[in-house]
């Protein structure tokens, strides 16, 4: 099991880039520890801004810095960043089109038993609804590195969500297919298409493996780029399959699933099932307990696929 959380990789990439590019600024809201950015703060005190527990201030100050030429990465728990400072994200970042990357840490249900105030089961919906805002949920540490390197090179608003805990590698060291804003195809098959993002990609891949053992062929897509979604990849995968399943660590309302529904419905109509979190506060528990309870694991996804195919 990999021991490095995605947030740690974000810090590594930012430290690498910040030594070459003095315009890179990291901003935090009493969140440097949770974001694994304490090392950055110590190493680059002149490129680090601490605003205290003030997420609205965090995002507006970041936008102001960006409008004066800084390349800003603002990191705070995804739950607060995507709700408390949503208007700042909408107006000062997205609408004003400033060079700010918002990094939502401990996303989804990472905070487990801390409850709904600390869960971000709505961030994909909230952030995706903002014109100009791009939304990325990398699936593992290796992909996170590629994504962050790509984001460091561009100058448009983005929201990146990562979880708190280390996740199993989806890819292999030295073999990480990555193209910006293009889904990564993990397997191809013509029975079922499983489209997932973020921490749900690993269980989706696992479901593909379990299904293959039973002679059921699955296309599995890593849709780390939830917005702009890779429409062509969705259409291709759905066209070749009998049914489509989406999986995300997010309410089933307004997230990746909804976006896939819209594409499949208009381009290649067929049955799509959206797996995700319910429209209610999630059950108390550690992330894995929560995932297991809602069937968001390899077995749960595979079972759903078999059920759909046998109908």
């Amino acid at each position: 099991m990999n021991k490095i959380p995605n947030r740690q990789v974000i810090c590594d990439v930012l430290m690498e880039q910040a030594s070459e590019n003095k315009d890179i600024v990291v901003a935090c809201s009493d969140s440097r520890g949770s974001a694994s950015l304490a090392l950055f703060a110590d190493a680059f005190p002149k490129q680090f801004v601490e605003v205290g527990i003030a997420e609205q201030n965090l995002v507006s100050i970041s936008a102001g810095l960006a409008s004066c030429g800084k390349r800003v990465f603002a990191a705070s728990p995804a739950c607060f960043l995507s709700s408390r400072s949503l208007e700042q994200a909408k107006v000062d970042v997205a609408y004003s089109n400033t060079n700010v990357t918002l990094i939502g840490i401990s996303g989804g249900v990472s905070y487990g038993a801390l409850g709904m105030t600390h869960h971000s089961a709505q961030d994909i919906a909230a952030m995706s609804s903002l014109p100009n805002m791009r939304v990325y949920l990398p699936s593992d540490r290796l992909q996170t590195k590629h994504l962050m390197e790509a984001l460091c090179k561009d100058n448009k608003p983005a929201y990146v969500r990562v979880g708190r805990n280390p996740v199993e590698d989806v890819y292999e060291e030295g073999n990480v297919p990555f193209e910006m804003d293009r889904a990564t195809v993990l397997s191809e098959g013509n029975d079922v298409a499983i489209i997932a993002c973020g921490e749900m990609v690993h269980p989706a891949k696992e479901a593909g493996r379990l299904l293959e053992e039973k002679g059921i062929h699955a296309t599995v897509l890593d849709m780390y780029c939830v917005k702009p979604i890779d429409k062509a990849a969705v259409v291709k995968a759905a066209t070749n399959a009998k049914v489509v399943i989406t999986v995300e660590e997010h309410t089933y309302i307004g997230g990746l699933g909804t976006m896939v529904d819209q594409i499949v419905c208009s381009e290649c109509p067929k049955k799509v099932i959206n797996l995700g979190l319910p429209d209610s506060p999630v059950i108390t528990g550690k992330s894995q307990e929560v995932f297991d309870y809602y069937g968001l694991n390899g077995e749960g996804i595979a079972k759903k696929a078999e059920e759909l195919l046998s109908k």
Partner: peptide, 13 residues
């Protein structure tokens, strides 16, 4: 407290 399924979570409820 903080266990699976409990209403006694890590913040007031």
């Amino acid at each position: 407290y903080s266990q699976f399924g409990s209403k006694y979570i890590g913040h007031p409820n």
